[in-house]
Nucleic acid binder design. Structure first.
Length: 419
RNA sequence: UGGGGGAUGGUCUAAUGGCAAGACAGCGGACUCUGACUCCGCUUAUCGGGGUUCGAAUCCCUGUCCCCCAGCCA
């Protein structure tokens, strides 16, 4: 039931698009996905994406898939797969039956690649990495067609089969989409869609020695899973052209759309997986869950609650402009959440022994104080008091300097009886 | 420089041609046996220049600045 006095929170631009798609009948059910590559632990930036994707699904009675984008066996491992699942669950989200892996689709992806070759829309290119870069041109100069661009369908089919069968060495060639080497969008200059990698995959073992590239794999995985709204970060805006090209060229029955939002940045901290990995590998930190890092596991170890992280993601919003959030906003979200029901504890950080001379020498009593100003139901705090006690040193110092406002009150000082 | 995006207080986000709003930070005050919390009050913004309009953050033109793309990474 909606309270008429409290207008609903305005929808961000992605939720607006989804609301319109629902209203127009373009979609009747919403399917999103969170697609991490299992090459590291999740961090607070991923939490933003998780809250967005799972949140949207939940709000619209849809589903959100957890899909591991595992197309680069050189960097991925099951350790990360497990850690990521644990963190998403801990954050409070559930993918139900929809735990997927891009590697589940390797057969279908291979079929689509063959189909592209048969359509004359993909070719095996023997340019090495350096030459390919040379041929690609620059931001201001168009690229040149690869000398292998016009190979026959039969030749391409045979060559691609050789790639698949492990008859060609890593790096000797790649399968490329035949798009447009003069496109002003660099990504459209015949992007590689399959490369040879003689590496065991954490799930498929040594079944494959060719692996699909992101631009080819992601859109088709979305299509296979019937994703309606494929939400990613801004740096993939240029890639959307390839995303659309692949699905349009293959004329797939399902047509997901990609939307991009600004990734989360937090001042004075590192967020990139590459840098976090470096901190871990070079032992600058205690591991992925070092509380000094903004990984989900680090935040958990530091005492953050799932609700505080969800509230934080809700607070910062979703937009398209590059933004840098103050660390204080994150910290505020835990304090806010913890303040509600966290029991209070008294401690003396810099104890200074004192003797209260007009207090009976042997007397000792237990004082009681309200534990929570806004929650009187919470059990009261009890602490001992005696003639010989501990005072918090900075308190004394401040008292001497007279920086306390008003006159000192008995209860103002943190006291503790030495044992 | 070609292309793709973006510009609202110190920071983030609203306002979708009709009173520039909220959160965080900051400042002042109240309350306090947590310098916390809570409460009250305050400061601070539409990138610049033109135009359309009764009316522009919003629409048009123009300029400036910022981000992304030249991996067989994602």
């Amino acid at each position: 039931m909606t309270n008429i006095d409290t207008p609903a929170k305005p929808l961000d631009f992605i939720r607006q698009i989804i609301a319109e798609d629902l209203k127009s009948g373009k979609h009747s059910n919403i399917v999103t996905r969170f697609p991490p590559e299992p090459n590291g632990f999740l961090h607070i930036g991923h939490a933003k994406s998780i809250c967005l994707n799972f949140g949207i699904a939940k709000e619209n009675n849809g589903v959100c898939h957890l899909r591991f984008d595992d197309t680069n066996p050189g960097k991925e491992s099951t350790e990360y797969v497990d850690a990521i699942q644990k963190d998403v669950r801990w954050l409070g989200f559930d993918w139900g039956e929809h735990l997927h892996f891009s590697s589940d689709y390797f057969d279908q992806l291979h079929e689509f690649a063959v189909q592209l070759i048969k359509m004359g829309k993909a070719y095996v290119c023997h340019l090495n990495a350096d030459d390919m870069r040379e041929y690609r041109g620059t931001l201001t100069e168009p690229g040149k067609d690869s000398p292998y661009r016009d190979r026959s369908v039969e030749e391409n089919l045979a060559l691609f089969a050789q790639m698949k069968n492990g008859e060609l060495a890593e790096g000797t060639c790649s399968l490329r989409a035949k798009i447009d080497m003069t496109s002003p969008n660099m990504i459209m200059r015949d992007p590689a869609i399959y490369r040879i990698m003689n590496k065991d995959h954490h799930r498929t073992g040594d079944t494959w020695c060719i692996y699909p590239m992101y631009d080819f794999c992601h859109c088709l995985s979305d299509m296979i899973e019937q994703i309606t709204h494929s939400i990613c970060t801004l740096e993939f805006e240029n890639n959307r052209a390839v995303y659309d090209w692949v699905l349009d060229t293959l004329a797939t029955p399902c047509r997901p759309r990609q939307y991009e939002f600004a990734r989360l940045n937090i001042n004075f901290t590192v967020m990139s997986k590459r840098k976090l990995l470096q901190l871990v590998e070079e032992n600058h930190v205690d591991g992925w869950d070092d509380p000094r890092m903004l990984t989900i596991s680090g935040l958990r170890r530091r005492g953050y609650t799932p609700a505080s992280i969800r509230n934080f993601c809700d607070t910062i919003g979703v937009g398209k402009r590059d933004s840098w959030i103050d660390m204080g906003v994150l910290e505020n979200s835990v304090r806010d959440d913890l303040n509600v029901d966290a029991p209070r504890v008294m401690g003396v950080l810099n104890p200074l022994k004192i003797v209260i001379t007009n207090y009976p020498e042997e007397q000792e009593e237990e004082l009681e104080a309200q534990n929570h100003p806004q929650n009187p139901d919470m059990a009261p705090a009890r602490f001992p008091s005696a003639g010989r006690s501990m005072l918090n040193a900075p308190t004394i110092w401040r008292m001497r300097r007279g920086s306390f406002s008003g006159s000192p009150r008995v209860g103002k000082y943190a006291c503790a009886t030495p044992t």
